[in-house]
Design a protein around this nucleic acid. Structure first.
Lengths: 325, 325
DNA sequence: CGTTTCGATCGAATCGATTCGATGCTAACG
DNA sequence: CGTTAGCATCGAATCGATTCGATCGAAACG
């Protein structure tokens, strides 16, 4: 049978089918019309030779595109532990997948891979070793929730307005002394804190941590143990808020009767038997906005920054303020 | 300044530096010695022209490798919601990243992307549209926990022994009537169930669902509402076990006093105030084994299948069997 | 019947590097 | 001083397709 020395190329197929290389190529790509008979002959020859279709590496070189979009999310277990990350990533993946593009998880290196565009989604990290290289290569860069590097398309949500609305809700309920559990310093963190301070300028900061339940629990347990003089805790994620609920209960504080707790994100927390009051961000829409921006930047368009609105959702974790006995 | 018509190529750099194309290439890749002076001249020329380094697409074609490994995990939000997926993925990503390889999330298509190898990690799905295409392209395939397709390297854990050990533990505690919450039919599911049945041949199957808390809660709530005659529930994941604990409590059943609950995986559940008795699988080691297999298959080696041992961890969620009052 | 048009096919250039084998030069050695 | 290594450099082939412009034939038209 056929020697297993080398896998067949399009040229082999063309020869076997008795057509030119260009016709064979056209038969596969369909970029120009080919008569049905010829096309059938080419495909038959391909099948006979065990040809699995045009080599993607060659096509990529010729077309100058790799079909791959990088996404930087930081260490995977950290990034995806945050339940807010997934619905967005799903939407990104769906839109890009429909466009035939693959999504590549980027570490800090990967400068040697051919990427058609890059999505930066590590809020909390404001410098990036790979940035200069990508800029030099003129790889389109879409940044989620900052930082707003030059040459970058920026997709964000209205952190400040959302937090301000949340704070206003607490104020209406009579709360005057609130504590704040924040994220590590970053664009979203600053905006969200500013939103809360629009209503409660003196809010006390408990501390900062990632959207990690265990880390938040540690921080909150220490704080609550001091018997702080507040009636509400505002968090910068639902996971943090869940930590507050869990630790408050552990100390015998009822939520919301003794303490109101608010989150951010609007993700599902089925393991918590309280529905959190929170700021719901449109995660899927954000993902689609990111993916759209990527597609348009790949097409060479200029794309404006995007800021998506958020929505206050009032749950069972906030209630009227009560003065400590 | 320089016309923005076309970005410079290695040939431009070579000419500007007054060396041959091959020498310029060698200056970047270091694949053969180049005198320090020449190298410096080439790099200087590159900097002057704004050359960002060799075009990865061209290198890929020449070398016949893309530097990208695909990983099929199913819908992202489903796959990564499972806490057992992340530590493994982290290990994979770390090892491959160190080898300069990128990790690409695969949907069902992506047949048109150049992949050096593919990892299949969707336990619960036993057919895959992309398989034939990958096989035709002779792309090395590493499969995690089945199915054991031909030409595939198979990395697994010893589900059956783990579950049997767990069941034996319950048997020792006096349990005789146990219920089983399973995953959707799949290789791991069958093995794990077999392990339990090695000890409890008559175990009653509550039902099957993914490692999804909400889904498991629904299933379990309905089951417990029937007042079943069992003293223990064995689950096929810790998330499922957590659902059982939560729902049992909701019905006023104490864990483990009224009901023993066991899981599988050994992942952290900080939002649960019980430490689950579970079968701990070596997630990071599994990830490293997968990545090693990938690297070796890319190098053309034959790689044997791998089965990793698991370990029983006894927590607070199992205790002596008590007969219902 | 001559001319135009249109679709199918082909030839050749091109994408941008890597790499093999050959060549030239210098230094070491007998 | 003649020869032999050995290192740096170079020229040319190669990876495997896509795509532009040209060509060829047949159908449509006047």
């Amino acid at each position: 049978m056929s020697g297993s020395t080398r896998s067949p190329t399009l040229a082999d197929v063309a020869e076997a089918a008795g057509v030119s290389l260009s016709t064979a190529s056209l038969s596969f790509s369909g970029n120009k019309p080919v008569s049905e008979a010829t096309r059938a002959r080419v495909l038959a020859a391909a099948a006979r030779l065990g040809y699995a279709g045009p080599n993607p590496l060659a096509r990529n070189l010729r077309q100058g595109r790799s079909g791959v979009v990088g996404i930087a999310v930081g260490p995977l277990s950290t990034a995806f532990r945050d339940p807010a990350a997934l619905p967005m990533l799903d939407a990104v993946s769906e839109v890009l997948g429909a466009a035939g593009l693959g999504l590549l998880l980027m570490g800090d290196d990967h400068a040697r891979l051919p990427l058609d565009a890059v999505i930066y989604d590590i809020c909390g990290r404001e410098t990036w070793a790979a940035y200069d290289d990508l800029a030099a290569r003129e790889v389109p860069l879409v940044v989620v929730e900052g930082p707003d590097w030059p040459g970058t398309t920026f997709v964000d949500i209205d952190h400040r307005a959302g937090c301000a609305a949340l704070a206003a809700h607490l104020h209406e309920l009579g709360h005057r002394r609130v504590a704040l559990l924040t994220l590590e310093p970053s664009h979203p963190q600053r905006e969200r804190e500013a939103g809360v301070r629009d209503v409660f300028p003196d809010a006390h900061v408990i501390g900062a941590c990632a959207s990690d339940l265990a880390a938040a629990q540690d921080l909150v347990a220490a704080y609550l143990a001091t018997g702080p003089d507040v009636t509400a805790v505002v968090c910068q994620s639902d996971v943090q808020a869940a930590a507050v609920v869990i630790e408050a209960r552990r100390l015998g504080l009822a939520v919301p009767d003794d303490l109101s707790v608010a989150g951010f994100d609007g993700v599902a927390t089925p393991w918590l038997d309280v529905e959190l009051t929170t700021v719901v961000q449109p995660l899927a829409a954000k993902g689609r906005a990111v993916a759209d921006a990527v597609l348009r930047r790949i097409d060479g368009e200029d794309v404006d920054d995007v800021v998506l609105p958020v929505e206050l959702r009032i749950g069972d974790s906030t209630g009227p303020a009560v003065e400590p006995a």
